[in-house]
Design a protein around this nucleic acid. Structure first.
Length: 588
RNA sequence: GGUCCCGUGGUGAAGUUGGAGUUCACGCCGGCCUGUCAAGCCGGAGGUCGCGGGUUCGAGUCCCGUCGGGACCGCCA
């Protein structure tokens, strides 16, 4: 703060302390609040990004909410009994104030303080320049800058080189939907904005850059969510002559540095869990380790069951909503139970069985009569359930059972983002392929088709491709997927093999990925990399549920900007120059 | 593409069984006030109940559509 002085100000509002008593100071800022006591005494709270200082004015001045002012006066101790211990500057005030109005202002559309947290977000976004004046938003904006800065420092200390990559690139239809940019010189042709710099960074490895990083803007034309915007920032990195542990260590240092810069706290070494274990125990590939309620295996319990819904199920698992930790949820009545059953069905389950543990150790449930006494005892035993607990069971394909329960576990037990410790975890050994493409009958890539298979599973490529693990990994924090990466295939023969499994012929590979594959014939080093989302990391470190709160000018869920009204219609002449004619909207 | 919730002065809310644009708080404007601190007291202004249609003697309230916002599913290799 010491170098914030300018020709107009000597100090920031929020930095004045008892050590400044006696100094003549000038501060500049916005009038946050005015308390008038007649024409001979008024208190002005002046706000800048650093905080608020009380200024005492002994004459009438027409200064209103959010007027931009410059105050000059002498810092003094507040009189006995009038200090404000809720304010960092509360022991002092600026007295004998000269007030200079630098600019007038209309009354703001919402209070420029924490009360605006309850204001319709659309209104906040329409006047984002006022919203960001608030302490919360200033904190978030500055926290984000700290995160960026710490990441840069950590990457550079590890000999990563920042390289900027093109924004205008060819369209590559794989993966996320792209934003297209029409070419003026080649009407009918389009550039695509990068979904990520994936292509470029691997070429930089072929180019001998050795370690690349970039705090890169990525654009994806997919529907928006609390943790997704059209444009978002990633720490994008790639390294040569590495194996998986090298990449995890390097990225781990960057995340650790960012977390330290944001919270001041060191984080312990990041633990690892395999994808399989994450699915078995938490039912998701991005487990929130802040709470228990782990999935419990029940398939064998019902091996010989009379209960038809369970008899033929491939996998049966359950979670226990323990009444001590979740008294409200464990006691849910029929309405809430119906709602969560609907939720389970929406997620793909055929149904959901709920069992309430009665005082005598029996189950209260519409299906209790189908569950034998030995089965009941075994279930109670496996969960360690006690009276009052509720048990939710799904019986389905393995992946559906895990995924549905994992989602219900999150719905019921997940703490708010600002709560609990930060639990970072590497999820490793993702499957190389996930499921079969319904049209081709071939496996689909789990991450992307350039992911290196796990060396221990190469033999399975021919016999059981869906069981092949990849050298692919995700970084997860408190149930949020921060990012993912992999060791890449650098050997053209291996690449051909994987394409072959995906049902992509040499010719098709050449056609679709030729510009990318050809360079690999000129000596590609073994390499791997990673990218993680800075918006998401910053949001969690800021304790925000929504990444919009850590983005200065975000879009709404429907992709609009309430401030600029983007996207807008454009002049027909502009379209003509680009060779574009807009079709009338499709009618139903 | 789908499911659910929301839309009432500048802001946040309440509005009962369908019965007058009614109410509360903050803000705003004017007045008073010499130690307040999201000051206090007095007075005042401010509305296309998102928009359109329907039902009804009568709609903020019920129905349909639409626009906008949010959460989620699909989607995000």
């Amino acid at each position: 703060m010491t170098n914030s002085a300018t020709s107009l100000r000597t100090h920031l509002c929020g930095e004045l302390r008892t050590t400044h008593i006696g100094s003549t100071v000038s501060v500049c800022g916005w009038l946050a609040r005015r308390r008038e006591h007649g024409e001979h005494l008024a208190f002005f709270d002046i706000r800048d990004h650093s905080g608020v200082i009380q200024c005492v004015v002994d004459r009438t001045v027409d200064v209103r909410s959010e007027y931009v002012v410059r105050i000059t006066g002498v810092v003094r101790q507040r009189p006995e009994g009038t200090a404000n211990d809720t304010l960092p500057t509360g022991e002092v005030e600026i007295g004998d104030c000269q007030v200079e109005v630098l600019n007038i202002a209309e009354p703001p559309p919402f209070p420029v303080d924490s009360r605006a947290d309850d204001v319709d977000e659309n209104v906040r976004l329409r006047h984002r320049y006022i919203d960001i004046r608030r302490e919360r938003m200033q904190r978030n904006v500055r926290l984000r800058a700290k995160v960026n800065s710490a990441i840069r420092r950590a990457m550079e200390e590890q000999a990563f080189v920042e390289v900027e990559t093109p924004f205008l690139m060819p369209s590559t239809p794989e993966g996320a939907r792209e934003f297209l940019v029409p070419s003026r010189k080649e009407p009918g042709s389009f550039y695509a904005l990068p979904q990520s710099p994936q292509l470029w960074k691997q070429l930089l490895m072929v180019a001998g850059v050795d370690r690349y990083y970039q705090i890169a803007r990525c654009l994806r034309d997919e529907d928006l969510r609390a943790d997704r915007q059209y444009e978002f920032m990633q720490l994008d990195a790639e390294m040569s002559f590495v194996t998986q542990p090298d990449v995890l260590a390097a990225i781990g240092r960057a995340v650790t540095a960012a977390a330290k810069a944001a919270t001041g706290e060191d984080i312990p070494p990041i633990e690892q869990i395999t994808w399989r274990e994450a699915m078995e125990r938490f039912g998701v590939d991005k487990p929130d380790l802040r709470f228990g309620m782990e999935l419990v295996e029940l398939t064998d319990v019902f091996a010989k069951t009379e209960f038809k819904a369970f008899a033929s199920a491939a996998a049966i698992k359950g979670i226990r909503v323990d009444a001590a930790t979740y008294p409200e949820q464990a006691a849910w009545g029929r309405g809430r139970l119906d709602a969560i059953t609907d939720r389970a069905k929406q997620l793909g389950a055929k149904g959901l069985v709920w069992l309430k543990v009665a005082a005598d150790g029996s189950f209260e449930s519409p299906v209790a009569k189908f569950i034998s006494a030995p089965e009941t005892a075994e279930i109670i035993g496996r969960f360690g359930a006690v009276a009052g607990d509720m048990i939710l069971i799904v019986a389905d394909e393995w992946s559906t059972t895990c995924e549905v329960l994992g989602q219900l576990r999150n719905d019921i037990g997940r703490p708010p983002v600002h709560e609990g410790p930060y639990r970072y975890v590497w999820v490793v050994e993702f499957p190389l392929f996930v499921g079969l493409d319904p049209t081709t009958g071939k496996p689909r890539p789990g991450h992307h088709p350039f992911c290196h298979p796990h060396p221990d599973d190469l033999a399975l490529l021919d016999t059981d491709p869906l069981r092949v693990r990849a050298l692919a990994y995700d970084l997860v924090l408190n149930g949020w997927e921060l990012g993912s990466g992999s060791i890449r295939i650098h050997d053209p023969a291996m690449q051909r093999t994987v394409f072959n499994k995906l049902g992509i012929s040499d010719e098709e590979a050449d056609r679709r990925f030729g510009f990318f594959l050809q360079p690999f014939r000129y000596g590609a080093p073994p390499h791997g990399g990673f990218a993680f989302g800075i918006d998401r990391l910053t949001a969690i470190l800021a304790g925000e549920e929504n990444i919009r709160e850590v983005i200065a000018f975000p879009k709404t869920q429907s992709g609009l900007d309430p401030m600029t009204n983007a996207p807008t219609k454009v002049d027909p002449a502009q379209l003509a120059e680009l060779g574009i004619r807009v079709l009338p909207p499709a009618t139903k």
